[in-house]
Design a protein around this nucleic acid. Structure first.
Length: 296
DNA sequence: CACTTGACCTGTCCGC
DNA sequence: TGCGGACAGGTCAAGT
């Protein structure tokens, strides 16, 4: 599920709801999700107050007064859902659309209860995600974080920086390159396809062959796509929900992702699906011309 | 260096 | 209705 726009949407929701709350209890139902597991980790969190909620790449970082941080990776199907209290209905009175429809449900693996009895649920159908507890001093040394590339929406990520990084990876193919979190932190399968289409570049183009104008187009496309997705609260396919259980709306505006067989919004050509880097890849074969001599 | 594949899991969907 | 296979938003390690 969650790429930068989804994780950032969740971050904003969390920041609004849990900052200042104090952890009363942590219920770990599936041990491997909460690391370190056992009593040790749980004990360190109980009594701590949430000071801030940040994001780096696709990671959620929940800062605690204990100088430790809960690091959450949602991977493919993780959900973080906040409920004010067990007795208060959600806005609109709608049930929370989790995978199973229940909350907690059978895919709820961790429940954090705050002292005011509000709760945070970690759901994960495929169980790829995790919650780690890391001291703030060690945060930057987490392998994932240590190797992250720039934040695509940050001021520091300029066209000049992008060009420099492309130069260093000139032999890479665009799709795997953009999926690589050490190149840029936060893009995933959806927004890579979207950005490449907007920039009119084929996923199998070799990075070093881009003309300057195409480098610029790609840079702009990445930022525009992410910004737009953020505006619509991300993309809900199957399991992504916001902190309040809402859906992201970006799929309505998607250019190619999840649109195999439909017509390109720009030229009407049928959107194609190919496999690149082992991932389903969507493109318009007319807007995104295949590199010379490439047959797939 | 850089790509591909399989692994980690559970569920859905589609064709037969 | 059942069954097998492909596929699903992400990383990681291993192989080429």
């Amino acid at each position: 599920m969650p790429e930068l726009p989804e994780v950032e949407t969740i971050r904003r929701g969390l920041a609004r709801h849990i900052v200042g709350r104090t952890v009363a209890k942590v219920d770990v139902r599936l041990a491997k999700i909460f690391q370190p597991g056992g009593k040790a980790g749980v004990t360190r969190v109980v009594g701590a107050k949430v000071t801030k909620v940040k994001r780096r790449g696709k990671l959620l970082l929940i800062g605690l007064t204990t100088e430790e941080t809960l690091v959450i990776h949602l991977k493919m199907t993780g959900q973080v859902i906040f409920r004010e209290s067990t007795n208060i209905k959600l806005a609109g009175g709608h049930p929370i659309p989790t995978v199973t429809g229940d909350l907690p449900g059978k895919v709820t693996h961790v429940i954090i209860t705050f002292t005011d009895s509000s709760q945070l649920f970690y759901n994960d159908l495929r169980q790829f995600g995790y919650i780690k507890l890391v001291s703030n001093g060690q945060l930057g040394r987490l392998p994932l974080i240590a190797r992250f590339g720039p934040e695509p929406l940050s001021k520091a990520f300029t066209l000049v920086v992008f060009r420099e990084r492309l130069k260093r990876r000139r032999r890479a193919l665009l799709k795997p390159l953009l999926l690589d979190q050490t190149f840029l932190a936060g893009l995933g399968n959806i927004y890579v396809d979207e950005a490449l289409n907007l920039a009119r570049l084929h996923p199998l183009r070799v990075a070093g062959t881009l003309r300057r104008q195409q480098q610029r187009a790609l840079y702009t496309a990445i930022r525009r796509v992410l910004t737009k997705a953020l505006r619509y609260g991300g993309t809900s396919i199957k399991t992504y929900v916001t902190v309040r259980g809402g859906q992201g709306d970006y799929l309505r505006y998607a250019r190619v992702y999840h649109r195999t067989g439909k017509s390109c919004r720009r030229c009407g050509t049928t959107i194609q699906r190919i496999v690149v880097a082992g991932r389903g890849t969507h493109l318009c074969p007319r807007c995104q011309r295949a590199p010379r001599k490439l047959v797939y």
